[in-house]
Every structure is written in structure tokens, then in C-alpha cells.
Design a protein around this nucleic acid. Structure first.
Length: 818
DNA sequence: TCGTAGACTATGGTA
DNA sequence: TAGTCTACGA
């Protein structure tokens, strides 16, 4: 570990701090700083370059995290910057934690005081500090998407807007999109076509939504960014404080920034005007050594790292133009390309390059590795989702027996719904696994209930939280009473909370009135435990939570319940209590609001625990930024990858291709691509076709295995693809039987058309009856016991002579009637 | 007001 | 299929 204070160390610090060092490429240096050890020339330059703006185009696995952390370390070590002058922004808390950890590993204590956090947490921090200017109370609530939807649902119901086709889902999507463009209800209304009743209604929904959030002293996720930008624009003095403070701003995953985030970066890197600097100096803000010849403070130096090929968040407003136009936006930008990959084998990279090469309108970039070809990619066409899961599970065991740790393996999928089959099989095969993301702890109903109690204490104006706990646990307060309280509050211009306190004047029944008053008193008493000097609360969070749980009976009622699920719910709440205790221990100076903030901002990728010895299951989106020795990319089918819904979106299929690319490039040594010919969905079974992207991978990179599940051992030497056609195309299940059922020749002749089934088998109107004997390609002969379903969904329940009982989709199963 | 049965709808990804 | 919502009766 290098220390900041060792005088005989680090040549870089001999450079006077005020003079930027500008080095070109692989400038030879007399003495090597340990910071540069093992870096290639481009990486070195990325660490050492000094200037107003630096754009690092970092291909997958090119060591960008290492470069970023060393760059930060180099700035600190050379004393060019104090830790407090550095703002590093990542997209997930996990990435932030990792970066902080790595800088700390290099610099030790010298790293304390930096802001390394996500866009959202940085903004919350700023907004809580400047709440007054922003017109908020510092204890504002943060609404997650579920909260947003509940709020919108009430608005839509009140406005009868569902008749115009509005749902909480589509309204929140539209509002979110607008907020990402920094539009608000008024600016939208100015450009809206007000002769369209739907538009008029939307404007009204948007207005009311904005109004309700204001009244509740709450911000949604998109507001966190947008409000910070508004704050900076409306209050130049506030902005100047942060512009002065952050001299070096570094942004990771820049390709996924949306317009609001771009604007935030823009605002933060603007120079401070001379008169403002003067004013700051006069009021005792230390600015002298920051001012330039004009008397102002020059804009912060900006470093962004990104890869447009990994942009997978266009659906939430990410705009790769932020990267492609970066040089125009920030004149004097230095661009550095990192193309050498230190993660994957060349085979994996060649596949990745081939796939992404099909996206037009991109800067060509070829990843390469010095690490050798490695194993071939393994392809597998399964009969069903379960069959696919079985393959994954079996291969995991093979790898494990060969010495690979479970934690070095991951299974990716496009949609969360795909986890079901995988989990079923993994449980059955006793493979230790964990689902990253999925139903998150903090999204569980009982946890949201418990948190709503805390939120109601922290932010008494939060009507949403109050209404959530009003009748949880059951205390006989029904929807009628809830509405009465709400309209009473509305009519008297008081808060919902106050109307609860005043409910005696509502003329409700004595039982109900008593229940409401009891809850109101409980919350008021809890609020007294907060430090009145510091409403953000240094009160002990776990004590507060325990008090609320005891007072409301939430936990004890769950414990006493006969419903077995309630036991799990009680355990979850106890887990939450344990978390508050940990929080108190780790953050003795933080209070209730800090806890709630942390809880609101945890993301799917954050609860990854690499140390646990389990296989990780996650969506392709969650996988970004991670890497594993072995990767199973499942469900590589049309309709899934690319996803059905992307078809109608401009740029949809290209974005899905990038998603596939991201998945491929997570693998270090082994990559498995699998697909199923049928997939269960909505309780139905649907026929699936291989993904178009599979054909983009050169055929000699993939070793297609036979479809298993089947009878004997896997790994038979005769892949299905071979007993089909010999022309190298249309393998899999096509091609058995009637030659007319063969797939058409490939439409597009690429030099590496993959041997991928492009069309599934179709048995047409083959009718089977109970008692029929059939022959299956893999299972052999068997007897039909039962036929269920109808039309194309008919399923034969077959007892095979040697393979046991199976269910087959008659339309496409490789069977013939005997 | 609560509990239940039946109807209905959803599963693209997320801070 | 499974989870959520609605209507109805108690």
C-alpha cells in the first residue's frame, strides 16, 4: 500500500500541483509509480492525462475500473487534488463501493472524504443539504416506482382517466420519460396538443401527480436528478458552492446517462463567474488558490468512461449521443481507446465482436486478447425451458467437479420470469444458487409496511406512507374511512396526519375513531424520540422501529398468525430490525433519514455477495459490469432475446444485440449459449425460434451439443444438427421426416452461417389418441396415456418403454406414430 | 368492515 | 400459472 505521506515515494507528486501534467501515450518515465504497474500504454495515458475533459472509450473487460481508481489515486497522491475535491459517479452502489474499496487499498485513509456514489445518492445528498432552496423539507421521502404507481392509480381513478386508456403503468412511464428530459407538467402542456382529450387528461394527471408529491414532501427517482439540476439553475450561488468544491468529476458508464444526468454533469462542470467567486471570497469561502486570471474559478476537470456498445438503458432515457457528442460538448477533449481485453478468451471475444459488428452506426472497435483462444463456446438447443435448466444444472456440476467454484459461475436470462424453471431444477439438483435482483427485500409488502411506519415518522406529510399503514395491521379502518379522512384533510387544507388527529369531529364510530387516534398517538410519540434539534434524526433507528412494531402489533400479529407465509414475513421484519442495528453500529452519526435514504437507493446489483459460494442467477441487465469464469446465457430465442416488445421500438433490436453482447463479454473462460424450443408462459406453452443473433456468431466458434434431457447420458456424439441436414444449416428439430418440412435456405448468406435451427419442426395435424404407440427420436418407443389441450397446444402424456413418463407438445415433438 | 370466490391480467430490463 | 383486483355476502 502506498501512503500519501511517504516523502521518498511517488515521482508524480514532484510535479507542482498547479501545473497540469500532460503526457502523450507511453511517455517513458524515469521512475515508475506503482500506480502504473502492469498498465498498457493507453491505460497509462488514461491515468496520467490532465486536462479539462477526458473521454475513455473502454471496451468490455479492458480494465476501466482499474484505470479509474488509479486515476483517482494518482490525483490524490500527487496532491493535485484533495479527496473532498473529487466526485466519482457510478450507476450502482456496488460499483461505488468497489471503487471506494480499491482507492482505499491504494491510498488508505488518504481516500476519506471523496464522494464516490451513484447519481441518485449524490443528488439526495445535495438536495437534503439544500432542501430549503429547493422548497423541500430535509426529510423528504423518496418514492420508488411502486409508490409512484399507487399515487398515479389514485389520481387516475379520481379523474376517471382509465376510460381514456390510462393505467398507472403507462402514465408513470410517460412521466418518467418526460422527467428524464427535464420537462415538467407546465412545459409539457405548452407544447401539447390541447384539442386532444387524451393529451388534456395526461397533462392533468401529470399536474396532480406533481402536486401530490409536493404536498407529501416527496420526490420520485427521476426528480432526484431533475430537481438537483433545477436547483443549480435557479440558485447560481448554491451551484457555485458545488462547482468550487468538485474540481475533478469522474463518471462511469457514461453511455447510460440520460439527458437529466448529462445536464447535471454539465452544471457541475461549469466555471464560476468572477463576480460570484469574488462574493464567495468575501463571505469567507476559501477560493483564492482556485481562481484563474479572470478572477473566476475554471470548470472542473471531467473524466467519463463509457462504451456505446454496452448501452442497454435506452428504455429509461439513456442517450448514447452523450458519448458520441462528448467532444463537441466539451471542447479540448482527449479521447483514449482501450481495446485490449484482459478478461475473456479470444473465442469469446471473437463471438462478441461478430455479434456487435452487426450494429451499424457505431465506431468500430475490436476487442482482442493476448490470452489465447480458449475453449469453444458451447451451444445447446433444449426441448423446453426445463430441459434447458437441466442442461445448465448438469454443466454447472461438471464444471464444479472439475474444480470451478460455484461463485465463479453465473446464469443470465432476459426476463425475470425465466428464473422459475431454473430455480426448480437447481433446487432439485442441490446446486447452491442465489437470484440477484428479482423480488427485492425492500419491495416485500411486509418490509414496505414496516418502513412506511418509519417514513411516516420521518416525514409526517407523506400521505402515501400513512395510508399504507392506516389499516396495517388490521384495525378496522376500511376504505370508506380512509376516503373520509382524505376528503376531510382536503376540505380543511390540513395534512392527512392532522386529519387523523382531528378525526373525532368526523362523526365516525367510536371503535374506528379510537383506532385512528391510537395510531396517530403512536406516530406522534415516536416522533418525540427524534432529536428536535436535528429532525433528520440521530435517533437510534432500531429502537424507533422496535417501538413502532411493538406499538402497532405488526410483528406480533404476524408471529401469531396461522398462515405459514406469515412466519416468513415475520422473519423478514426481524431481518429488517437486524439491519437497522447494523446500520446504527456502522453509522453512529447517521439517523433515521439516512437509513431510509440508503434503503430507497439500493439496487438489484447491490446485494451481490461475491464471497458466498453460490451460483449467481440474474438478468442480462443486472449482469453489466460483472464477470464470471463461466457464463450460461439462456433463452437465446426470438421473442425473448430480442424481446418481443423491443420489436416496435426504434433501435430496439440493436439495443437487444448490445444486451447479448454485454452477456457474452461477462465470461472469462467458458461461455454456454442455450435456447429452448418451447417455453411456458402464462401457463401456456409457446413455440420458440432461435434468436437471430445466434447466426451472427461464426460457426466454428460454437460447439453445438445434442439436445438432452433425454433418455440416456448427455454428450452423445451425434448432435441433432447433424442428423438433420448436411448443408450446414437448419439443424435441431427441423428436418426429420417430411423433406418439405425442411427450413428454407438461409435468406442472408453470411460467410459464417451458424448451424442453428431456423425453424421448428411441425407435425401439422398429427392426431394421437390414448393407447397409440409412438416413436420419439431420443426417448424411443412409448405408449400414449392421455392427450390434453387442444389445437396447437395439444400435449401427449407418454409412457416410454425405457425413458419413463414424459409430456410432449404434439405439434413439434420429434415423434412419429407407429 | 372483512373474507372469500371468481374474474382478470400479466411477465422487458432499473436507480 | 399465479398474483391482484372486484363484487358480493356475512
Amino acid at each position: 500500500m502506498t501512503t500519501l505521506f511517504d516523502p521518498d515515494h511517488t515521482p508524480a507528486r514532484q510535479v507542482p500541483s498547479a501545473v497540469p501534467i500532460i503526457l502523450d501515450g507511453a511517455a517513458p518515465r524515469d521512475r515508475e509509480s506503482p500506480l502504473l504497474e502492469g498498465l498498457n500504454p493507453q491505460q497509462r495515458e488514461a491515468v496520467l492525462y490532465r486536462g479539462p475533459a477526458l473521454l475513455i472509450i473502454a471496451g468490455a473487460g479492458s480494465g476501466k475500473t482499474s484505470v479509474l481508481t488509479r486515476r483517482i489515486a494518482s490525483l490524490l497522491e500527487s496532491r493535485e487534488a484533495w479527496p473532498s475535491q473529487i466526485l466519482a459517479i457510478t450507476f450502482t452502489n456496488k460499483a461505488a463501493a468497489e471503487m471506494r474499496e480499491r482507492v482505499r487499498a491504494i491510498l488508505g485513509q488518504g481516500a476519506d472524504g471523496m464522494w464516490i456514489s451513484t447519481f441518485h445518492s449524490s443528488c439526495v445528498r445535495i438536495l437534503r443539504r439544500e432542501a430549503e432552496s429547493a422548497g423541500l423539507s430535509a426529510t423528504f421521502s423518496i418514492y420508488d416506482s411502486a409508490d409512484t404507481k399507487v399515487t398515479l392509480k389514485r389520481i387516475i381513478k379520481a379523474l376517471d382517466a382509465d376510460t381514456l386508456g390510462f393505467t398507472p403503468g403507462n402514465a408513470s412511464a410517460k412521466i418518467s420519460k418526460l422527467k428524464n428530459e427535464l420537462a415538467d407538467a407546465d412545459s409539457y402542456a405548452r407544447n401539447a396538443n390541447m384539442s386532444d382529450p387524451q393529451e388534456v387528461m395526461f397533462v392533468e394527471i401529470f399536474r396532480q401527480y406533481t402536486h401530490r408529491l409536493r404536498a407529501a414532501n416527496a420526490l420520485d427517482f427521476d426528480d432526484l436528478i431533475g430537481e438537483t439540476v433545477y436547483l443549480f439553475r435557479a440558485f447560481p450561488k448554491v451551484a457555485a458552492l458545488y462547482r468550487r468544491r468538485f474540481r475533478h468529476i469522474l463518471v462511469d458508464e457514461y453511455q447510460d446517462t440520460n439527458h437529466a444526468q448529462y445536464s447535471l454533469v454539465r452544471e457541475l462542470t461549469r466555471p464560476v463567474e468572477p463576480d460570484l467567486a469574488e462574493e464567495m471570497e468575501a463571505t469567507g469561502v476559501h477560493v483564492r488558490n482556485l481562481r484563474d486570471a479572470s478572477g473566476g474559478i475554471p470548470g472542473a476537470s471531467l473524466t467519463v468512461v463509457g462504451d456505446s456498445d454496452q448501452s442497454i438503458y435506452a428504455f429509461r432515457g439513456a442517450d448514447t449521443r452523450n458519448i458520441s457528442e462528448f467532444e463537441r460538448d466539451f471542447p479540448g477533449t482527449r479521447v483514449i481507446l482501450l481495446e485490449q481485453n484482459y478478461r475473456s478468451t479470444q473465442n469469446i471475444l471473437s463471438a462478441a465482436n461478430a455479434v456487435i459488428g452487426h450494429n451499424f452506426d457505431r465506431t468500430d472497435k475490436k476487442l482482442w486478447s493476448a490470452g489465447g483462444d480458449g475453449e469453444k463456446i458451447v451451444g445447446y438447443t433444449a426441448y423446453s425451458g426445463h430441459d434447458e435448466a437441466q442442461f445448465v444444472s448438469d454443466e454447472i456440476e461438471v464444471l464444479h467437479r472439475a474444480g470451478m467454484a460455484y461463485r465463479d459461475m453465473a446464469v443470465f436470462y432476459r426476463t425475470n420470469a425465466q428464473t422459475r424453471a431454473l430455480e426448480e431444477i437447481l433446487v432439485r439438483s442441490a446446486v447452491p444458487y442465489r437470484v440477484v435482483g428479482g423480488t427485492k427485500f425492500y419491495e416485500r409488502a411486509e418490509i414496505k409496511d414496516a418502513l412506511a411506519y418509519l417514513i411516516a415518522v420521518a416525514n409526517p406529510n407523506d400521505e402515501l406512507a400513512l395510508r399504507r399503514i392506516l389499516n396495517t395491521p388490521k384495525r378496522g379502518i376500511g376504505p370508506a374511512t380512509e376516503t373520509a379522512l382524505a376528503s376531510f384533510a382536503e376540505a380543511n387544507q390540513i395534512s392527512f396526519r392532522q386529519s387523523m388527529r382531528d378525526c373525532a369531529s368526523l362523526g365516525l364510530g367510536p371503535k374506528v375513531t379510537g383506532a385512528i387516534l391510537k395510531l396517530a398517538t403512536l406516530l406522534d410519540e415516536a416522533a418525540l424520540k427524534l432529536d428536535p434539534e436535528n429532525p433528520a434524526g440521530t435517533a437510534n433507528v432500531s429502537e424507533l422501529l422496535t417501538f413502532l412494531l411493538d406499538g402497532s402489533g405488526l410483528l406480533s400479529l404476524l408471529r401469531g398468525s396461522r398462515d405459514p407465509q406469515d412466519e416468513a414475513r415475520a422473519e423478514n421484519i426481524e431481518e429488517l430490525v437486524a439491519q437497522t442495528k447494523d446500520f446504527n453500529k456502522e453509522n453512529p452519526d447517521s439517523g433515521l433519514v439516512d437509513f431510509l435514504t440508503q434503503v430507497s437507493l439500493v439496487a438489484a446489483a447491490d446485494d451481490l455477495d461475491d464471497a458466498s459460494g453460490t451460483v449467481s442467477l440474474m438478468t442480462l441487465h443486472t449482469a453489466k459490469g460483472l464477470e464470471y469464469e463461466a457464463v450460461f446465457l439462456t433463452g437465446v430465442e426470438e421473442g425473448l432475446l430480442p424481446h418481443q416488445m423491443s420489436a416496435n421500438e426504434p433501435g430496439g433490436p440493436a439495443e437487444e444485440r448490445r444486451l447479448f453482447y454485454v452477456g457474452i463479454t461477462r465470461a472469462r473462460q467458458r461461455l454456454y449459449l442455450s435456447l429452448a424450443m418451447t417455453r411456458a408462459q402464462f401457463g401456456d406453452i409457446n413455440v420458440a425460434m432461435p434468436s437471430r443473433y445466434l447466426q451472427e456468431i461464426p460457426v466454428d466458434l460454437i460447439d453445438w451439443k445434442q439436445s438432452p434431457g433425454m433418455a440416456n447420458s448427455r454428450g452423445g456424439t451425434q448432435p441433432r444438427a447433424l442428423n438433420a441436414r448436411r448443408d450446414g444449416f437448419g439443424g435441431g428439430f427441423a428436418g426429420r421426416g417430411d423433406p418439405q418440412a425442411l427450413p428454407p435456405a438461409p435468406k442472408k448468406k453470411t460467410e459464417w452461417a451458424s448451424r442453428v435451427p431456423s425453424q421448428v419442426r411441425d407435425n401439422g395435424d398429427l392426431t394421437l389418441m390414448q393407447g397409440d404407440r409412438i416413436r420419439h427420436v431420443d426417448f424411443g418407443d412409448g405408449r400414449v396415456n392421455q392427450v390434453t389441450g387442444d389445437g396447437t397446444k395439444r400435449i401427449a402424456h407418454v409412457q416410454f418403454d425405457t425413458a419413463g413418463a414424459k409430456k410432449l407438445l404434439i405439434k413439434i415433438a420429434p415423434i412419429e406414430k407407429l
